[in-house]
Design a binder for these strands. Structure first.
Lengths: 326, 326
DNA sequence: GAACAGAACTAGATCGATCTAGTACAGGAT
DNA sequence: ATCCTGTACTAGATCGATCTAGTTCTGTTC
């Protein structure tokens, strides 16, 4: 990793000398700030280009009181996080902010990921699907403008999230409108949005005058598989399944398919999240879509002018595909 | 995003004044450098703790000639990239290096991702599954010690990769040893490792004295679905399918399952990569596993003391699961 | 042609750390 | 008493940019 160049990369001073102007003027040119003639700008840019000069972001960050950078803590394995990170780039960009990503891994805890961003002096933090307890969230929010995405925070930190309760209702009502009567809900437990989705489902079922049937599910395909096997053991099969999320729903689908159950004729299945895998033609999973771009945009808004308890909630959207469709 | 504190976070100067020592000494303490008494170290650390001081990485980076940071360009949607990023953290850490992540998205091209890292003055670049042409790779490698992971570079840049040819052979031989005779290979085309895997497959088939049967496949589930439908239209079905990667294989599996084909009895299926989805009990995809930790470690090694055309190749590993198993 | 405004440009301080080249002082050898 | 050595500590330069407060220069206006 020995730097091949003799004395490192060129600096503003080098460009200034080569162009026969002051360093300050070079700075003006590169910041597109007023105070330089057109002719000079062209010349400076040309000299810089020739020397292979690029502004050193380290020095830039140090000098500017504002780093104009948002830290993003995410999980490299959560597919939905990828979707949001992707949308965060343009959302931040449109407000003149850069992103600094910090991944969570089994060895690299959320705390470590946050600390490393604080050391970089990011101006705000976006936590994707944080697993931190409310007290820890408050600590973080206390140090820096922060926002939690896709999880309710109970006011501990501003949040950008989907209206999970409405999503739960939406899914249940859709199944009921298809004429389904024996609807099972596969619960996600206490995780981000878990309670809200379950309650939404229960409300919709109650409104329809139908009995609720909640079964412990989980967050991933494995959980869906386990739950589906249990369902198949019942004397009377349900005629619809609403799962906490898409991954769980996909596990269910797989078991049903192998057992020769006709989806959706015998059992309709609906998930939550609208992950890519579910959009595949062969899977065709009906689902409640979260608005990734909207969440990302809300998240940046909230970090930028974050009042303590603020919350932005996006309406979910019903996406009908094969598993509940004709 | 208004900084709540009056004058921003405390600096080394603040700590020095509060502790009644010089700034330089505080620096010595925080770098664990020699030149300070035990007593003083304790005192400085205590004062710093009380003020909530943390070293400003921006200033640190600027002053040190070395940033000791590796830039990582990756795709948030490629599951395998997540696996490698995860392993890169400890690999870099053990050599005293930090990571700076830069994501590729539809709007944010690989070039942009690379530029942003160059601006941060990272000391080396790790490109995951880069899609850049050889010429562009050479340009990048010319500017900075770089390494491409999981793609052959034809010497344009050091590479840490899996022996894809051996992997192709391994998969084919496994199928042949199971007694399969009509083996179809779903090709991945010209992408990273595509040619090598195909050639390995062809070699193994030739050695077994069996005819080769290469069909255009692709990189994702959709491609697998298309290819599988074509196969089902044939007058005589193959008795085994080796796919370019796991995602493609999963698409194939789905179609076969829906068509009522018994996997693996009628058709055995094997993929490549060992992604998480394939490990699921219900899918149970046999595959050729790439050694993510090994690739990550090799990648860091190569960046650190990168001779121009260097290459580290890891042996792949056959993982037998349900789709070719009992 | 004096006064003035605005544009173009520059010198020098500054951001918050590290690094170099010192100074001060203790204790031991001569 | 003098010299030396090593440890503990400090002043000031430095990294590469931006920012403030200027200075020139050009062109208008009265």
């Amino acid at each position: 990793m020995a730097q091949q160049e003799g004395r490192g990369r060129p600096t503003m001073k080098d460009v200034a000398e080569a162009a026969g102007v002051s360093r300050a003027l070079v700075s003006i040119v590169f910041r597109d700030a007023p105070g330089a003639g057109e002719e000079t700008r062209r010349h400076v840019r040309e000299v810089a280009e020739r020397l292979g000069y690029r502004v050193d972001r380290r020095a830039q960050l140090l000098r500017q009181s504002r780093t104009r950078t948002l830290g993003v803590v995410f999980d490299v394995h959560a597919a939905f996080h990828g979707e949001i990170v992707e949308e965060l780039y343009p959302a931040a960009d449109s407000r003149g902010l850069a992103l600094s990503l910090s991944a969570i891994t089994p060895m690299r805890t959320e705390e470590i990921a946050v600390e490393s961003l604080l050391d970089e002096r990011v101006e705000g933090l976006v936590l994707l699907g944080s697993a931190l307890p409310a007290a820890a969230l408050m600590d973080v929010a206390d140090r820096l403008p922060s926002v939690a995405v896709a999880r309710p925070t109970g006011g501990a930190m501003p949040a950008a999230r989907t209206d999970d309760r409405a999503g739960g209702r939406l899914a249940a009502r859709h199944l009921v409108e298809l004429g389904r009567r024996r609807v099972v809900y596969l619960d996600g437990g206490d995780v981000a949005g878990g309670r809200e989705r379950r309650e939404g489902h229960l409300e919709a079922m109650a409104e329809a005058g139908l009995p609720a049937d909640v079964v412990a599910g989980g967050l991933d395909e494995e959980a869906g598989v386990r739950a589906a096997r249990e369902l198949l053991d019942r004397s009377q099969l349900p005629d619809a399944v609403a799962a906490f999320n898409d991954r769980c729903a996909i596990g269910v689908l797989d078991v049903l398919l192998r057992a020769g159950v006709d989806v959706p004729r015998e059992i309709a299945v609906i998930g939550f999240d609208d992950i890519r895998a579910g959009r595949l033609e062969t899977i065709g999973l009906s689902t409640i879509a979260q608005d990734a771009a909207g969440l990302a945009s809300d998240a940046v808004d909230l970090v930028v002018d974050g009042r303590p308890g603020a919350e932005r909630v996006r309406a979910p959207r019903l996406v009908v595909r094969r598993t509940t469709g004709g």
